[in-house]
Amino acid sequence: MDEALHERMREAVKDVPAGRVSTYGDIAAMAGAPSPRMVGALLSEDGHDLPWHRILRANGTPAPHIAEEQLARLRAEGVLADGQRVNLKKYRWQPES
């Protein structure tokens, strides 16, 4: 991945405000990445300083291996899940154009 794309994805993740969520696909689209999987790879490799917990799968669920911590962090910001699923209609962040 080129450095410019890497930085665009990092900035898109940083832009998601507390109390809101976005999806891997949303971030990929904002940054011009060809695949949501690239966002997941970025967060797993270079996302420790980002609000990674605000990024969910397209169905509103966290990745299984981080679900407990992710949902706890979201809950602390006021994002409530129904079981393991966050209501994207309620909490999804859309940047202003």
Rank of each mutant, 00 (worst) to 15 (best):
G19D: 08
E69Y: 06
G60L: 03
D82M: 11
V39S: 05
L42V: 05
A72Q: 11
L56E: 02
V21Y: 08
S97F: 10
K89R: 14
T23E: 12
S97R: 12
R10E: 06
P51R: 13
H48E: 15
E77F: 00
E11D: 13
A31R: 05
M30I: 11
D46N: 15
A58E: 15
E3A: 10
M30G: 07
I66G: 02
L88K: 09
R20C: 08
I27H: 04
G32F: 06
V79Y: 00
N59S: 11
M38A: 12
V86G: 03
N87D: 15
E3I: 10
S97N: 11
M38W: 10
E96R: 14
K90S: 05
A81K: 09
V21E: 00
R57E: 14
D82Q: 13
R57S: 14
P36Q: 11
Y91Q: 03
D46T: 12
L74F: 00
R8K: 11
G32D: 10
Q70R: 13
L43E: 02
E45L: 15
D26R: 12
G47D: 07
P51N: 08
G60K: 08
A28G: 11
M38T: 12
H65R: 15
A33H: 03
G19N: 04
I27T: 05
T23D: 10
L56N: 07
V21F: 10
M9K: 01
R92I: 06
I27A: 06
L88C: 06
P34I: 04
G32C: 09
S22Q: 04
N59C: 09
P62R: 04
E68R: 09
D2M: 04
E11I: 00
R57Q: 15
M1Y: 07
P34S: 14
L74K: 00
Q84H: 12
P34A: 11
V16P: 00
V86N: 02
V39P: 01
A12G: 04
Q84T: 13
H53G: 08
Q94L: 13
K14N: 08
D46I: 06
P95N: 05
E77Q: 03
E3F: 11
T61R: 15
T61Q: 14
V13P: 01
H48A: 15
R37S: 15
W93P: 10
S44E: 15
S22F: 04
M9R: 02
A28Y: 02
A72I: 02
A72S: 09
G78W: 00
D15C: 08
M1T: 09
M9L: 08
A81N: 05
A67V: 01
L71F: 01
P95G: 07
H6P: 01
H48Y: 15
P17M: 04
